[in-house]
Computed example of a mutant assay.
Amino acid sequence: MRFHTRKWVKPEDLNANGTLFGGRLLEWIDEEAAIYAIIQLENQKVVTKYMSEIDFKSSARQGDIVEIGIEVVKFGSASLVLSSEVRNKMTRETIITISNIVMVNIGPNGKALAHGKTEIEYVADRL
């Protein structure tokens, strides 16, 4: 799994228990998955269709730095299935895992559009 993004847990990210609010963490994961899919599919019109079971394994506290990992599970004809793990950057303790996040490539008419991709591409390889 490649960890692309780091986030610093700030006071506005906390829940009433003083730990990272799960909704904020899911927002960060959704944004990371969308950015990853946009780059892979070379289309800015990508939407989240589905997230599988969300498994919270530990919590994060104010001041922690978390890193978000994304990995391709498979390429569909109009979709990209990703998995995600978020961990504490300093301790490497896993905070959350999501096995399947389905991102769908959208065409100009707002409908799913085949993307023709079958494997991970890196920007350097496209140049």
Rank of each mutant, 00 (worst) to 15 (best):
Q44I: 01
R61Y: 13
E53T: 11
G69R: 09
A60F: 06
E121A: 12
G63H: 10
S83W: 07
G76H: 07
S79M: 00
A33I: 07
Y50D: 05
I98N: 10
E121Q: 10
A37T: 06
E71N: 14
S84V: 02
K117S: 06
S79Q: 00
Y122M: 13
N88Q: 09
I65A: 08
V46R: 07
A78Y: 05
R87Q: 13
L80Y: 02
I65S: 08
N105Q: 08
I39Q: 14
L41V: 04
D55A: 07
P108A: 10
M90D: 14
H115R: 01
A34I: 09
T94Q: 06
M51W: 12
I95V: 14
T91E: 00
F56V: 05
V73A: 13
E121W: 07
K49R: 14
L82D: 06
V72D: 03
N88V: 03
I101E: 03
A37Y: 04
R87T: 01
S79H: 00
Q40N: 04
S83K: 15
V73W: 07
V47K: 00
K57E: 10
E32Y: 05
E119W: 01
A37K: 10
I54W: 03
D55R: 14
I96F: 01
E42D: 14
R87N: 04
I54P: 08
I101D: 06
V72P: 06
K89Q: 13
V81K: 11
F75R: 13
F75M: 03
